[in-house]
Simulated scan of single mutants.
Amino acid sequence: MATDAALNAASPGKAPRTARGRETLRKLLDAAAKEFADLGFHAASISGITRRAGTALGSFYTYFDSKEAIFSALVKDMSESVAREAAAAMSPDATGIAREREALTAFLAFARDNKEIYRIIDEAEFADPASYRAHYDGTATRIAARLDAAVAQGHLAPGDNEVRAWALMGMNVFLGLRYAVWDDSRPVSEITAAVEALLREGIAAR
């Protein structure tokens, strides 16, 4: 799930300079995802991360100063991976509600393949509040930008797109919890169709 930004999120002055170093950093981040997802932040350990990564303990300190540092890098890595997957899934000509459906489709698929993201992001609320807020602020900002563009193009009615963005994000988060983490048996297309109908038609009686 690496992104270039995440690979550069090692502790200050410790960014990898070689392909081998980037590969080692990737292994550490992947191992940290498993360690934190299985044990939680407080019970997780640096030795557990390096054991899962198959690297020497010294390799950890080549790139990270502490458990807190790799946790912050991992939250950033996951957040940017979600953004990248959503962007890649959206058709160039899609806009408005259709674009939001595509973004939700990508998010549900990502969450099904990376269920650990929920525990790690939830842990960040207490273990790394700054990263926790940055994750949600960044996501809401991207959604609001899409809504702004759709309003400008005449595909959505004008409104408070900041509030709309946070509402959409909150809905998507809990849909992921219900239909990706707790039970992933229902087709994603059914879920996103219901959400699209909600956005297009509302729930008021006609």
Rank of each mutant, 00 (worst) to 15 (best):
A94G: 08
F64D: 08
A144V: 08
G58S: 13
A86Y: 00
V82K: 09
A83H: 06
R178C: 05
W182N: 09
R142N: 12
Q153N: 12
G202I: 10
I203V: 15
G54M: 04
A9I: 11
F71T: 06
P92R: 04
D93T: 15
A15C: 08
T141A: 15
A32S: 15
V173E: 13
G138C: 01
R17T: 12
R99F: 03
K34Y: 07
Y63S: 03
Y132V: 04
L177Y: 15
A83Y: 05
T55C: 09
V181F: 06
M171Y: 11
L108K: 04
S47M: 10
A88C: 08
K67Y: 07
E201G: 08
A43N: 08
A197M: 13
V195G: 01
D183W: 05
S66M: 00
I143D: 03
D93Q: 13
F41C: 07
H42G: 00
R146V: 13
S185H: 13
R142D: 12
Y118Q: 06
P12L: 04
N172V: 02
G58E: 09
A165P: 11
A98M: 04
E196Y: 12
R164H: 13
K34P: 05
A152H: 11
D113F: 07
A127D: 00
A94I: 07
S66E: 04
K34A: 12
A145W: 09
L175E: 06
T139M: 13
V151F: 01
A124S: 14
G58R: 02
F107M: 10
D30S: 09
E116H: 00
A87D: 15
R22I: 04
L156W: 10
A56I: 04
H155L: 04
A109W: 08
V181T: 02
V181C: 06
E85T: 13
A109K: 14
E100P: 00
F64V: 10
R20W: 01
A10C: 15
R26F: 05
R206Y: 09
D184T: 06
F126Y: 12
E85W: 08
T141Y: 10
F174S: 12
S189E: 15
D4A: 14
A197T: 14
I120K: 04
A109S: 14
N172M: 14
H155Y: 10
E85F: 06
M171A: 13
A165L: 13
A130E: 14
F36N: 00
A111H: 01
R200Q: 14
T141G: 11
V181I: 09
D122M: 11
R99T: 00
A6T: 05
W166S: 09
G54K: 00
A127R: 03
L39K: 15
A106Q: 07
D122G: 05
R51G: 11
A9K: 09
Y132W: 07
L108G: 01
D148G: 08
N114F: 03
D183C: 01
I49D: 01
L168E: 07
S47N: 14
E196R: 14
K14S: 09
A127W: 01
A15F: 05
Y132D: 02
R112T: 05
N8I: 02
Y63C: 03
R99G: 10
D30N: 13
A43Q: 07
D30F: 10
A149K: 15
I143R: 02
H42L: 11
E23M: 07
S79F: 01
A134T: 08
Q153C: 00
A5R: 15
E116P: 01
A86S: 12
A2V: 14
L104V: 07
D128A: 12
H135M: 01
G48Y: 06
E116L: 02
Y118A: 04
R112H: 04
